Computed example of a mutant assay.
Amino acid sequence: MTYVVTENCIQCKYTDCAEVCPVECFHEGPNFLVIDPVECIDCAACVPECPADAIFADDEVPPDQRDFTAINAELARDWPVILRKKAALPDAETWNGKGDKRPLLRRS
């Protein structure tokens, strides 16, 4: 099992999760974080730290978010590792909880 960052992280990009991760499995893109499924050790330390409630065990990802399992694996290959907490995006609170953010995902 691994953990997956889902749609609610888009446009928020809180990084509290990366700070508590005991391995280097979080990767940072312009407006989203992903988890590398190869590096994730299934410790679940990140789940309670996510202010956006955007991280799920891969077998608990909501049905309408399951495509994020593949998105995490794909983007983790290209994006750099993030190890420390950074400020969230400036309008993160405005975006937290809004749906239909897939079109806003910036891959580069």
Score class of each variant (00 low, 15 high):
residue 1 M to N: 11
residue 2 T to G: 06
residue 3 Y to P: 04
residue 8 N to L: 11
residue 9 C to W: 06
residue 15 T to V: 04
residue 15 T to S: 06
residue 18 A to W: 06
residue 19 E to G: 00
residue 19 E to I: 00
residue 21 C to T: 01
residue 22 P to K: 05
residue 22 P to A: 02
residue 24 E to S: 11
residue 30 P to G: 12
residue 30 P to R: 14
residue 31 N to K: 05
residue 33 L to R: 00
residue 35 I to D: 07
residue 37 P to W: 12
residue 38 V to D: 15
residue 38 V to Q: 13
residue 41 I to H: 10
residue 41 I to V: 15
residue 41 I to L: 09
residue 41 I to E: 14
residue 42 D to K: 02
residue 46 C to F: 06
residue 50 C to E: 01
residue 53 D to S: 13
residue 54 A to G: 03
residue 55 I to A: 00
residue 58 D to M: 13
residue 59 D to R: 08
residue 60 E to H: 03
residue 60 E to C: 04
residue 62 P to L: 03
residue 62 P to M: 03
residue 62 P to N: 07
residue 65 Q to V: 05
residue 66 R to M: 12
residue 67 D to M: 15
residue 67 D to C: 11
residue 68 F to M: 09
residue 69 T to K: 15
residue 70 A to F: 12
residue 72 N to P: 14
residue 72 N to E: 05
residue 79 W to P: 00
residue 81 V to E: 10
residue 82 I to A: 02
residue 83 L to H: 13
residue 83 L to S: 13
residue 84 R to M: 09
residue 85 K to N: 03
residue 85 K to I: 01
residue 88 A to W: 07
residue 89 L to A: 00
residue 90 P to R: 00
residue 90 P to L: 00
residue 91 D to G: 02
residue 91 D to V: 03
residue 92 A to I: 00
residue 93 E to S: 01
residue 94 T to N: 08
residue 96 N to H: 12
residue 96 N to K: 15
residue 103 P to M: 09
residue 106 R to N: 07
residue 106 R to L: 13
residue 106 R to G: 00
residue 107 R to Y: 07
residue 108 S to T: 15
